[in-house]
């Protein structure tokens, strides 16, 4: 199959999921409503559901899915390990810690505003990855396997530690935390779309400019140094980008794992070797996966809603085990 055809398929699927997301849900839109939306003559409640509830949520899933996938791609390239994922190495746990601090100290006080929760969770996720990153330098050299191991340990330790504050939580606070940790997309209004979209585009464009370095990183460090690349510097820059992307995505979409694992892997299968195509494919597939997971979570057991993070993990887990069994180079 030729590459344009593959991209056509990805974007057709994405468009189908987008339409399905917009037109399904507890408030059912009739065919007449859809026609009236097209002709700008819809009733107020139809417009409200369509423009204020469904559309921003759909956009959030697409943006966050793409960001998580790209972050996963960067981590996999850097660690030369196809099993790396931002969720596995501590981003989710760190953001969860930010959320706990928010519930503990900010929620319900006068200083609270719309962005304080995502900001705290973003800071938690980013700080965690950066600490893990700086701990994985041994003898002045960044070591990607150590990075993954320390990340896994940190994810475990921080998850254990964040419950230190929860003994004073009441039921509603506990429910809030659990919904966050299950990967429930909660930042689903225009305010969040406007806040994160420019940011994610900016970081992604920057990563795109580093695409040549990324495609060379599968060589040995010594060879790269011999070719004149400042390997440590490039790795630091790229890992900070990965941390920026995943922690912002997790801060509005909740703790979601496995997108950063699956999307780059499928993209590598579809577009072998060409890093530019892998980049584009990863972004598209990531967006498709998270929006499809959110749609599935909404429809499967309706009216009950399953958090998108759980749907992703239910698909991602078996895929992960399959990857483990087939991974040749780890």
């Amino acid at each position: 199959m030729r590459n344009p055809v593959k991209f056509m398929i990805i974007f057709t699927l994405l468009a189908a999921v987008m339409l399905a997301t917009l037109f399904t849900g507890t408030y059912s839109l009739t065919f007449g409503d859809i026609m009236s939306l097209l002709t700008f003559s819809a009733a107020d409640d139809v417009e409200l559901v369509f423009y204020e509830f469904r559309m921003p949520r759909m956009l959030i899933t697409i943006i966050c899915g793409a960001a998580l996938a790209l972050s996963g791609l960067i981590l996999q390239v850097l660690s030369r390990n196809p099993l790396a994922d931002p969720g596995i190495i501590g981003v989710n746990a760190g953001s969860g810690f930010g959320v706990v601090l928010f519930i503990m100290f900010v929620s319900g006080t006068g200083t609270m505003n719309l962005y304080s929760l995502p900001l705290m969770s973003f800071t938690g996720g980013l700080l965690t990855v950066l600490i893990v990153f700086f701990l994985s330098f041994i003898g002045g050299r960044f070591n990607s396997n150590i990075f993954i191991l320390i990340g896994i340990a940190t994810a475990m330790g921080v998850t254990g530690f964040l419950y230190v504050f929860t003994s004073t939580f009441d039921d509603s606070q506990m429910t809030m935390l659990n919904r966050y940790l299950a990967g429930n997309i909660w930042g689903d209004s225009w305010a969040f779309v406007i806040a994160i979209l420019p940011y994610i585009i900016l970081v992604s464009v920057f990563v795109w400019m580093k695409i040549n370095e990324m495609s060379m990183l599968n060589l040995e460090d010594e060879n790269l140094s011999a070719l004149g690349m400042n390997v440590n510097f490039e790795k630091i820059v790229l890992i900070i980008c990965a941390a920026l992307l995943s922690s912002v995505a997790v801060s509005v979409a909740g703790a979601i794992s496995f997108i950063g694992l699956i999307a780059p892997h499928i993209a590598r299968l579809l577009f072998p070797r060409n890093m530019k195509l892998i980049f584009a494919g990863t972004v598209g597939i990531g967006a498709l996966l998270l929006s499809a997971a959110d749609l599935a979570g909404k429809l499967l057991l309706a009216p009950a809603v399953i958090p998108a993070g759980i749907v992703v993990a239910l698909i991602g887990g078996p895929y992960f085990i399959y990857l483990l069994m087939t991974a040749r180079k780890v």
Binding site: I148, I152, G317
Partner: peptide
């Protein structure tokens, strides 16, 4: 270790 972490998460 990665296998264990991934399977736990799942």
């Amino acid at each position: 270790i990665l296998a264990g972490a991934g399977i736990s998460l799942f």
